[in-house]
Design a binder for these strands. Structure first.
Length: 222
DNA sequence: ACCCAGGTGGCCC
DNA sequence: GGGCCACATGGG
């Protein structure tokens, strides 16, 4: 099976139109930190709380004492690291871009990515998520779930971030909407199958996994 | 009492 | 460059 075929099948199964709710670039940047290794619901909880308190602004975060932010971030887990990262991002934007995220996001994607990666708590995946969802730049997010789907379907076996990203970017239209949709579909699929059973939903429903064509545990995506 | 969740960075070899 | 680990809360 080719990637195109996989994406087509996933597209008929899942609705990922509202995968990342439409928010301002700064909210997406904060959300990208909050959601690291965390259920989206927990990250949104913090996001909603910050917004309700009028604290979802670059300057407000920069002015907020670290201990206060830590308390607010707690429900999203890793709260000390995340509070520090969010504050560092706010301080950087204020100091280098007049508190305007677009100052960073509208730069040449390569240098914007480098700049993001220099911030604490921002690795490749978070940088690419920010570039894609907040900056609408065509950077494919090579999340662990993406690697898992690719390897379990036999399309591409690498777990290396850069290799997986190159694989995807070489086969998709270099368009932010396409990247976002494919990423969301693959993550959604990897997450929604085989939570507790040896067989994933697809295997159970159709004898052989609809995506791998194989039966049993090896046929599953996790 | 486990396991998992839309990663990152530090340390070690 | 890879392997291991801490980081932490909330839900199943």
């Amino acid at each position: 099976m080719r990637l195109e075929e996989l994406v087509r099948r996933l597209g008929s199964r899942y609705d990922v139109e509202r995968w990342w709710p439409a928010e301002s670039p700064w909210e997406i940047m904060v959300g990208a930190i909050l959601v690291q290794r965390t259920a989206w619901e927990n990250a949104t909880m913090v996001l909603d709380d910050l917004r309700a308190r009028g604290l979802l602004e670059v300057d407000a975060i920069d002015d907020l004492p670290l201990e206060r932010l830590e308390r607010l971030v707690r429900p999203a887990g890793f709260y000390r690291q995340k509070a520090r990262s969010i504050k560092a991002m706010a301080a950087h934007l204020r100091g280098a871009h007049r508190s305007d995220p677009l100052g960073l996001l509208s730069k040449h994607p390569g240098s914007a990515r480098k700049e993001l990666l220099s911030l604490p708590g921002v690795g490749k995946e978070t940088a690419d998520a920010i570039l894609l969802f907040a900056g609408r730049r065509p950077r494919f997010i090579a999340a662990a779930y993406v690697s898992r789907v690719l390897s379990r379907t036999g399309l591409f076996a690498s777990q290396d971030y850069d290799e997986v990203q190159r694989y995807m970017e070489a086969r998709l239209e270099p368009d932010p909407s396409t990247y976002a949709r494919c990423y969301a579909l693959m993550v959604q699929h990897a997450r929604s199958t085989c939570r507790t059973r040896p067989l994933c939903d697809n295997c159970v429903l159709m004898d052989a996994c609809a995506f791998t064509g194989r039966t049993g545990r090896e046929g599953c995506l996790r």
